[in-house]
Amino acid sequence: MQENYLAKWLANELTEEELELFKKSPEYESYVKLKKASASLKAPDFDSSRVLRAVEARKDKKETKVISIAKHPKLYRYAAAIVILVATSYFYISTLDDKVSTQYAEREQVVLPDQSEIILNADSEISYSKKDWSRKRKIALEGEAFFKVAKGKKFTVHTSQGQVAVLGTQFNVENRKDFFEVSCYEGLVQVSYKGEKIELPAGSSLVVINGSITHTEVPKNASPSWLLNESTFKSIPLLYVLDELERQYDLEISTQNIDLNQAFTGSFSNTSLNLALQSISTPYQIAYSLEGNKVLFYAESATK
């Protein structure tokens, strides 16, 4: 008889031969009785609503932390302004079937059913549910957008890299490849990144590049510079600056002998390409050539 045959027998896993053998054993009948009797056993009643109430109470307590600050009169007037930028990896929530997207060099303004406004920067997409908007204010974002949120229930932006939650606020979220940025201009927002909850008050910004988090400052009571046709960066690797330039002008950028990890601080125009190219090339003392929509940045010393 195989090891643990009683367990096998109870689970009907004995072979026919083994079962026959077991049936002939003197203790077989007593095990049958035990099987039958234990089948009619019952556990004490369980009142799941009692536990659920306790769990819900704790859940709510956690969430009110954000609400209470947002209810501060001064903050409540406007709420927050954040910018979030995240990777191009696709993020999707099954119920959100109304979509708005922009191509390279495009921008789009969306007014939601509750008069909240979203401005989408180039190469970005939002999805949400128009139908369920009054019940759940939830937006999935890929790319970059600025949010002006009307007062009301919790408003969340879901991205592939983190979640941003806010109450009656204005904020901007940017979600691009390996890059996630949330800037809060007014009010207070809560960012959930990899299980960590980080609160961003007005005037602060959170940048995550390849998983490492840095905090920087942004001007209070302002709006992201791209709304004024300028892209601004503070100690951001050149690689992401050039990505943004490509998106704003629908370009194909290549580089030669240039360290793409060096940090860029400054801004470029989103309306004049030549000005923009100079804004990037001059501080680094590099050259560029422009043909059609192809741009090459190269180190001057390396070419001749």
């Binding site: 090891e3 643990n4 009683l6 367990a7 096998k8 109870l10 689970a11 035990l34 556990a43």
Partner: peptide, 29 residues
């Protein structure tokens, strides 16, 4: 016996192997 859980499920709950659960079951019976 009461909840009708298979040995594999109980093993997952307890964080042990299915064989360990079979052993417990055998000894319990």
């Amino acid at each position: 016996r009461i909840d009708g859980k298979k040995y594999a499920e109980i093993a997952e709950m307890e964080g042990v192997s299915v064989k360990a659960i079979e052993k417990r079951m055998h000894l319990a019976l």
